Lab assay of single mutants.
Amino acid sequence: ASVAVIAAGTQGNIFATSALRSMRFLQILRMVRMDRRGGTWKLLGSVVYAHSKELITAWYIGFLVLIFASFLVYLAEKDANSDFSSYADSLWWGTITLTTIGYGDKTPHTWLGRVLAAGFALLGISFFALPAGILGSGFALKVQEQHRQKHFEKRRMPAANLIQAAWRLYSTDMSRAYLTATWYYYDSILPSFRELALLFEHVQRARNGGLRPLEVRRAPVPDGAPSRYPPVATCHRPGSTSFCPGESSRMGIKDRIRMGSSQRRTGPSKQHLAPPTMPTSPSSEQVGEATSPTKVQKSWSFNDRTRFRASLRLKPRTSAEDAPSEEVAEEKSYQCELTVDDIMPAVKTVIRSIRILKFLVAKRKFKETLRPYDVKDVIEQYSAGHLDMLGRIKSLQTRVDQIVGRGPGDRKAREKGDKGPSDAEVVDEISMMGRVVKVEKQVQSIEHKLDLLLGFYSRCLRSGTSASLGAVQVPLFDPDITSDYHSPVDHEDISVSAQTLSISRSVSTNMD
């Protein structure tokens, strides 16, 4: 405001104040949320940038038409019409005319000016109207692209899951042992070998009828009888010197917790746990005396209480009078009846079946994303299906024409109403129809010849004498029936064969 007042002088105070007050009108834009329509302006900018070359070309040609039209109309009207006294007036008329506004304040009066105005109007309006069409088509394409992008975003994750499931299904095939990355992934998420051994031990116990592997080994086996189970490696608790092959000598807290839970599941009659010990102070733990958990001091820290809870689970003690015997301790020893080589084939089979199920689920979810969402998608899918159906029908028609023997030239002739090819031409065609016709002709010829021969033979049998045999009239074959199959017997006289037959029969009768 200060700059405006200084620039306008003393009389500019009122002007500056009114100008600043008129800017209050811009507050109405906040009512229509114009300040939060950044996406709309961004869309407009992207459309203009995408079609910038077309817009520049249309505007450039339109500007050239405007300059030439205004100049030529000015030359034609400057002497006869006072409205075109300057080139600026003519340029104003050209702008209003070519933009199809047409105020009518300035019009050419001479015939030359009117002809020039009409010609440049028809030429220039087309170029001035091009930017509107370019922007409209650009907006339509952009909206369609955003629509497809939205659908693509919805299909991206199911497609990625389907590709991942397909690759993992491919890589978990037993015949592709060189693909090891997927197996490394499952090695990292699978439970430890100790848990798998416990699982298979329970399965084997159920197969043995509820007997433990130790009891199965204690059962008497006759001499020479084959053992029911192959000899396997035996594993004891981590306190002993022997372990399962492939295990580490260090046992983690999870393994100890699972070991304690498995020992508690063996039965309360074979294992008696004394009350857990509780320390009397955060600094020292008295293991010899058993106290109640309700006497825990409230001033303990979080670490002390955590250690106390761990001691409740991981440090059970047995009383002296209830101490288990050596046999019970041997039964409680952890027996590992299986090795990694025995378990891994079954584990890989389970993983393979899981990968198949996940692949089928991913495939079903991806197919669900291909379903249409709204009416536009339904129409688009219907149009695509219609085009596909037309293509299939056209391909089927082409194959039928190839089989029947109607080529493209014959199809055009039928469409024009011309006469089709004759039967002889159809026979000569190298097509399925021509071959079928040729075979039918040959079969008819053979059938006719057989009928003639059978009739001749029956007449010979009825006559009974050589004289009557020679008097029999043998009809000749019709050459038209034989089609294109020409037998060497067709052109010979059958009477010669009949005479030869009669001579042979007379000779045979004389010999008798």
Rank of each mutant, 00 (worst) to 15 (best):
S240T: 04
I503M: 15
S292T: 05
R505L: 02
T172N: 03
W300L: 15
S487C: 06
P479S: 04
Q263L: 02
P479R: 04
K416T: 03
S283I: 08
S333I: 10
G434R: 11
I253N: 05
D304N: 15
P276A: 10
T509S: 05
V221A: 12
K298N: 11
A206S: 11
P276L: 14
F359L: 12
C235W: 10
Y457F: 11
S508N: 04
A346D: 13
S284T: 07
R264G: 05
V328A: 07
L196M: 06
T509N: 12
S175G: 07
E215K: 07
F302I: 15
E492K: 06
R258G: 11
I354S: 07
I481S: 05
T398I: 14
H448R: 12
R205G: 12
Y485H: 08
V427A: 07
K438N: 12
G464S: 05
M389V: 02
W167L: 01
S395C: 12
L360V: 13
T349K: 08
Q499E: 09
T500P: 12
I253V: 08
K358E: 13
L453M: 15
E368G: 02
R411S: 03
D377E: 13
S487G: 08
S249I: 15
S171F: 01
H272N: 08
R217L: 09
G224A: 08
I189S: 08
D341E: 08
D401N: 14
R307C: 05
T500M: 08
V296M: 15
S483Y: 10
K295R: 06
F359V: 12
Y178S: 10
S504C: 15
M432L: 14
P372T: 01
D187E: 11
H486R: 10
R411K: 09
L214Q: 13
Y382D: 14
D388G: 14
E425A: 13
V216A: 10
V427G: 05
D423G: 13
R435S: 13
S171T: 12
K394Q: 01
K416M: 10
R207P: 06
D410E: 05
Y186C: 13
K365T: 12
R194T: 12
A181P: 09
L454W: 02
G210D: 09
E337A: 10
R406W: 03
D480N: 15
P475T: 12
S422F: 11
G209W: 11
F302V: 05
S495F: 05
D484E: 09
P226H: 13
Q286P: 14
K376R: 15
R258H: 05
A219T: 10
